[in-house]
Computed example of a mutant assay.
Amino acid sequence: MPACWVRGTSCGTLRAHSPRPEPRRMSERSESPFDLDALSAWLGQAVTGFAGPITLQKFKGGQSNPTYALDTPNKRYVLRSKPGPVAKLLPSAHAIEREFRVLDALADSEVPVPKVLALCQDEGVIGRMFYLMERVDGRIFWDAALPELDAAARGPIYAAMNDTIAALHRVVPEQIGLADYGAAGNYFERQIHRWSKQYRASETQTIEAMEQLIEWLPGAMPADEEARIVHGDFRIDNLVFHPSEPRVIAVLDWELSTLGHPLADFAYHCLAWFTPPGIMRGIAGLPIANLGLPSLESYIADYCQKTGRQAGIPDLNFYLAYNLFRLAGIAQGIAKRAEQGTASSAKALETGALARPVAELGWRIAQGHMH
């Protein structure tokens, strides 16, 4: 059954889900948090052809930026807003204007993105900033092993996914007006410093592997300063596929996008081959060849061919270890909040407990143990 493109979970590799979570569903609550008359009036002026009346239903789930199905008699849209009330948000948090900007900039590129229609930065309209986009319907695969498909159909899905991330990393930011979309230079240095600091602030126990990574990563950084648009959370369940063809028709969840090293982005995507099914949403330990899934080696070779990397990825262990270090830092932050009682759910405890095994996997890979 086709699924609406909307979802929204940052760093979803670590989310405590079953191997096949339910598709995103709309809330049964009918009341709107917004003044629909004010919203309809603004959209009528800002969006060509927009005409109410409108109905609004929130999509369930853990979106940090609430997302709604907005329907009119003639067309279906998606509205994405900052959470409210605005006064309680940090200035840089929930920057949906950045999401709008990157989606708008990529509209004419090879990267399939939903078409954005209008950004409202006037918080007086509905009490928070929001943007409207067209709605894209297709298939979302929640399990990287693709159990709903035959073996022969799985390879083409992975090939389409590879095509899409390669297309993103071929985009030259300066050519689409995104030269200032992120800080210039020293990407890994800045990221390692940031996540080391955040890890220290949330440390609840000594994790020897994390200590090793914090010491090793700064000295192992590649020398090149390559900069491209990085998605930040590129994985299979953040993609919408054509209803019947092995083709990506929309890339979702650009909340973490910035300018950075494309191989950091690609290596994050490749963690599926190193992490198990279920809570980590990977395919490690599965009979990949029998399932019709590509080997990591062939997947990397395809990406390198599509992005002109004739030398392959010599520092792959660094890029993988860096991403696992970052994910361990995120998990440790969740563990700290669970300990303090600000994130006391069973899922928070389960996700927080991943800090140690994720860091240990990262340190093994850093040492060259890739299998």
Rank of each mutant, 00 (worst) to 15 (best):
V171N: 08
A346V: 11
P276R: 07
P73E: 06
D104S: 15
I207W: 01
R364S: 14
E225Y: 06
L56Q: 01
I330Y: 05
A201L: 10
D150W: 01
F130L: 09
D108Y: 07
M26P: 00
S32E: 13
I279P: 01
L90I: 06
F318D: 01
L132M: 08
R128M: 15
L293E: 08
A335Q: 10
V86L: 11
S64N: 14
L263D: 00
G308S: 07
D150F: 03
P85F: 13
G138A: 12
L259K: 11
E31Y: 11
R101C: 14
A152F: 06
F34N: 10
E134R: 01
I54L: 15
I330A: 05
P19M: 09
T55M: 02
I207H: 00
T342F: 09
H169L: 06
Q340C: 13
E225F: 04
V358R: 08
D108K: 13
A335C: 08
V358Q: 11
A3M: 15
R128P: 08
Y68E: 06
I126Y: 13
P19D: 09
Q175E: 14
L354M: 14
Y299Q: 07
S10V: 03
P91C: 05
L324Q: 05
A264H: 08
G308Y: 10
P21A: 06
A359S: 10
E225H: 11
G260P: 03
D122C: 12
G333T: 07
S202Y: 01
L217K: 01
L320T: 02
D143M: 07
I249D: 02
G8Q: 07
Y68H: 10
P33I: 15
K88D: 14
R135K: 13
F50K: 05
L259I: 12
S10R: 03
T13R: 09
V86N: 10
V251N: 09
A145W: 00
A179K: 09
L70M: 12
V136A: 11
T72W: 01
K60Q: 12
W42C: 06
I207S: 02
L103R: 02
T55E: 07
L117F: 06
Q340D: 15
W273N: 00
A353T: 04
E297M: 03
I207T: 02
I207R: 02
L316R: 01
L239S: 12
E208C: 05
R25Y: 03
E189F: 01
E123S: 14
I157M: 15
H94D: 08
D265I: 00
R139Y: 04
N74C: 02
S196H: 13
G329C: 08
A250V: 03
P218Q: 11
S257Y: 10
I140Y: 03
A355N: 04
F234S: 05
M280L: 15
F325T: 00
A184M: 03
I140P: 00
R309H: 15
V125H: 03
H371E: 15
E97P: 04
Q332D: 06
A41S: 10
S64R: 12
A209N: 05
P262E: 00
A3W: 12
L149M: 10
I236D: 04
A159V: 12
R337C: 05
N238M: 09
A87D: 13
E203F: 03
A366E: 07
